[in-house]
Nucleic acid binder design. Sequence first.
DNA 1: TCTCCATATGAACACCTATTCATATATAAG
DNA 2: CTTATATATGAATAGGTGTTCATATGGAGA
Lengths: 106, 106
Amino acid sequence: MAVKTAPLTENQTANLADMFRLLGDPTRLRIVLATLDGPLPVGTIAAKLDLSQSLVSHHLRLLRGARIVRHERKGREVHYQIHDHHVACVIDDMIAHVSEVREAEL
Amino acid sequence: MAVKTAPLTENQTANLADMFRLLGDPTRLRIVLATLDGPLPVGTIAAKLDLSQSLVSHHLRLLRGARIVRHERKGREVHYQIHDHHVACVIDDMIAHVSEVREAEL
DNA sequence: TCTCCATATGAACACCTATTCATATATAAG
DNA sequence: CTTATATATGAATAGGTGTTCATATGGAGA
């Protein structure tokens, strides 16, 4: 199936690149992957990934700004989860692609 | 639909991040988007996007290494196109996501 | 109020990388 | 072999950013 590609505006291209760029850092990507499992407080994410609380918070701020994750206060904690299932799909597709490439290599 | 996420190995996560990172640069993304239209020689891509030949070549090298694009010699020219339709799908999904987000904002 | 805990934020630095410029390689034609 | 065109490559640099450390903010309980 050929893909129809209507030309994107400059802003659309920039937004698109931003999304990819934010997912392009290994640490940040690990954080995003962690938020796929469900709403998790910042401290739990940091502990699970063995990262400093500050670093996780910095990254979550960026991810929040791009609407890759959503947050919700629960008492003193702030729980983060993937923003929507569309973002999750994009990530899953890329995982599938990477897997296929690896298979083709072997 | 909830997404089942089998934990990825360190290498898989790194590969995944690399794919996203390569698509995360605006200039490189524009080049990738251009290759969606079909096999194009380097010079044509450079001209169409108003970029230097050297810059385009550098980026194509990286994209080739990650199997995001494929190349084929045609006489003196080297034609580039998107590597496979799976990569095209990932990009289209992200475009759709960005579009949806923009709509939700207005 | 004060204290504790969880998270956010600001500044500073070190590293990475996108870009440019110059040059090399490769293919085709005379 | 020489010339011309198309692409690739190497080095150098300027700007961006991921990380750390220190500190601030904010909610919960006494």
